[in-house]
Design a binder for these strands. Structure first.
Lengths: 252, 252
DNA sequence: GACGCGAATAAGTCGGACTAAACCGAGGTC
DNA sequence: GACCTCGGTTTAGTCCGACTTATTCGCGTC
């Protein structure tokens, strides 16, 4: 474990964020490397088309073994961020190839300063998907779905969005709603959407105390779905997303 | 892209599913391993919750080095299919954790017998996203977007959907449409959707000669978007997706 | 000037050794 | 008798260094 000793060697005037080795019991080493490289790329510090340093050199620079470095690069490759070929090296792919819906990529995107344009895009996606999902949910929900949504709503009311538990409950509500559509493709989007929701909520929170109580909006959606009123469900969800976008926009 | 059909049909016979990937095969070794394991999991031959054999044993069984095997597992981990911890081993995660929108996972899902329920779900997602995207595209498309869509349409008319080039043009059309929304989140979905489109188109093709010419539908969509008629664009796209679902349903 | 042929190069694969984490059961404590 | 603690054992995680394969690029040939 050579990664422990802080770089006593020349630390390069700041521009060289040497091996980010979080507290030993955090995520695994390759996870840290992937996180490091991933944020570098998503944030644009390594632009698309650029070639990163060779494996041996880069692994040494980060003070990790080549195996760990390579496994990290595999992760990036799996998410479409980079591509590597013998003799050519490892290049950052154009943004169009990135799996931006991948929860982890989303996390990297939000780990620094969030791109306001991208946040707008995400809300636009929510505005497309979630009302339609609410409509389907109102059609197909069963007893268990309603229960799950009600539970999430209760938790959300108890703790507010100011707490982690509250935000988790918010996510649970949206997850339960997507699950109530009984559509696996939509449920897969759920992970991305709830990630986006929780990140943006966090930023809203950071900016100021929540200016508006979001619970009533959620209750309207819930009632419509539980009651099987498809149009009302879609409409209620649409206003919910619109208001959330409004709040987020103000805080950025 | 036709190098996909690996001879992985041999594995059914016995308990000897050796990845026959002689050197010279298209993609890299770890890609073949990931494909092998990925299809095993997505197809349900290795059910969620199950623990796969230890690295050393499994790598040896597949006749590859442990490094290559591990890198393949990293890919699966990155896509949310498995999770591994020391002493516990590597377990298949529940379906809800899988990134089903990942193009590669989608490819694995379609490499065997396609799950008709999942195909229906995918079309439902298309039915939600693409009409809304067409509406946005009609609002925001610029000169280049229109040109890209027209070019794709021309190619699509020249070659039919019976050819690879024709299917590629179909994908290009949908990609260009999503791109015309100028929404990066939607464009990210584009990869998943066009993957789904091309896979299902292939199955339609396999079943029988295409029963209906899809070009007129596409032209209606194109005209509405080029003309900036948002409602017509959404409506035309909705019927396009509905008809495509109809065709696909018949062929399965 | 175009074309192929052969290095140089960087990723890909191999194997084996060692480390660290987590589960499990033996043994002790209350 | 039940619970806690503490090692032991299993399995992934990391490291190392050598070798292979696939490209790219420059050189020489036609």
């Amino acid at each position: 474990m050579a990664a422990d000793e802080q770089a006593d060697s020349v630390d390069e005037a700041g521009v060289q964020p040497i091996t980010r080795t979080p507290k030993g019991s955090g995520r695994r080493l390759r996870g840290a490397i992937a996180h490091y490289l991933g944020t570098q790329i998503v944030s644009g510090r390594i632009a698309p088309g650029e070639k990163l340093t060779g494996e041996v050199a880069n692994a040494e620079a980060l003070d990790v073994s080549r195996s760990a470095y390579r496994e990290a690069v595999q992760v990036l490759t799996a998410k479409g961020l980079v591509e590597s070929r013998p003799k050519a090296g490892t290049h950052v792919l154009p943004r169009s190839r990135w799996n931006m819906l991948d929860p982890q990529v989303l996390a990297w995107a939000f780990s620094g300063e969030p791109d306001t344009d991208f946040v707008r895009d995400l809300f636009e996606l929510r505005a497309v998907v979630e009302p339609a999902a609410a409509r389907l949910a109102a059609e197909r929900r069963d007893r268990d779905d309603v229960k799950a949504m009600r539970d999430a709503l209760t938790k959300m009311r108890r703790h507010t969005l100011a707490t982690d538990a509250g935000r988790a409950a918010d996510r649970d509500f949206h997850d339960a709603l997507l699950a109530a559509t009984h559509n696996h493709a939509l449920m897969a989007l759920s992970a991305s959407i709830s990630a986006a929701v929780s990140w943006t909520t966090k930023y809203k929170q950071r900016a100021r105390a929540l200016p508006r109580d979001p619970v009533p909006d959620h209750i309207k959606v819930f009632d419509a779905i539980a009651g099987g009123d498809v149009d009302a469900a879609a409409a209620a969800m649409r206003t919910l997303v619109d208001l959330a976008l409004e709040d987020t926009r103000l805080s950025m």
